[in-house]
Simulated scan of single mutants.
Amino acid sequence: MHIGRRTSPMRILFGLLAALCLATPALAQSRPVTVVELFTSQGCNSCPPADAYLEDLAELDDVLALGYHVDYWDRLGWKDTLGDPAFTARQYGYAETLQRRGVYTPQAVIDGRQHLVGSNRPAIETALAQKATREAPMLSLDTGDGSTISISLSGADGSDPSLHLTIVRYIEEAAVPIERGENAGKTIAYVNAVRSVKAMPLPDGNATLNVPRLQKGEGLAVLLQAYSPKGAPGPILAAARYEAVDD
Rank of each mutant, 00 (worst) to 15 (best):
E182N: 03
V109F: 00
S30A: 15
E243L: 00
T7P: 01
V36E: 00
N183T: 04
G219E: 02
N120S: 14
G118W: 01
K198A: 13
H2R: 14
E135F: 05
N120W: 08
V245D: 01
L22S: 11
I110Q: 03
L202D: 04
T126H: 12
G217R: 05
D74L: 07
A123R: 14
E243R: 05
V222M: 07
G205I: 10
L116I: 15
E59G: 13
Q29S: 14
A127Q: 05
D111F: 01
G112S: 14
L139M: 10
S154D: 10
A221K: 11
A207N: 07
N192S: 06
V197N: 11
T148F: 01
E179F: 04
L223G: 13
L139P: 04
N210L: 14
P9E: 09
R213I: 12
L57E: 02
L27G: 10
E37V: 14
Y104P: 00
L153C: 05
H164P: 02
I12F: 06
Q107E: 12
V222A: 08
L38Q: 12
A129N: 09
D160N: 12
D56K: 13
E59N: 13
A58Q: 05
L224M: 11
D160A: 05
S140Y: 05
E59T: 15
D84F: 02
L153T: 08
Y94I: 10
Y72L: 09
K186D: 08
S41D: 03
A127C: 07
P9K: 10
H69S: 09
L220M: 06
D74Y: 05
I124N: 02
G217P: 01
P212N: 11
A132M: 07
R6T: 13
A193L: 02
L237S: 10
M1C: 12
P201N: 05
A207S: 10
H69E: 04
I188T: 10
A232M: 15
D142G: 07
S8A: 15
A226M: 13
V197P: 06
L209A: 08
D145F: 02
E55P: 00
R5T: 14
K230V: 15
Q29W: 03
Q114I: 15
W73M: 06
G77E: 01
P201K: 02
R90N: 08
Q91M: 06
A175D: 13
A184C: 02
D160T: 05
G205M: 07
K186I: 03
A18C: 12
D56T: 14
L20C: 09
L64C: 11
V176R: 01
L16M: 12
L139V: 07
R213E: 14
H69Q: 07
T40M: 01
V194W: 00
Y104K: 00
A127V: 11
A238V: 07
G158S: 03
L139D: 04
Y242W: 04
R241Y: 01
A19R: 09
V36Y: 00
L82N: 04
W73D: 07
G15K: 11
R134I: 15
L237M: 10
D51N: 13
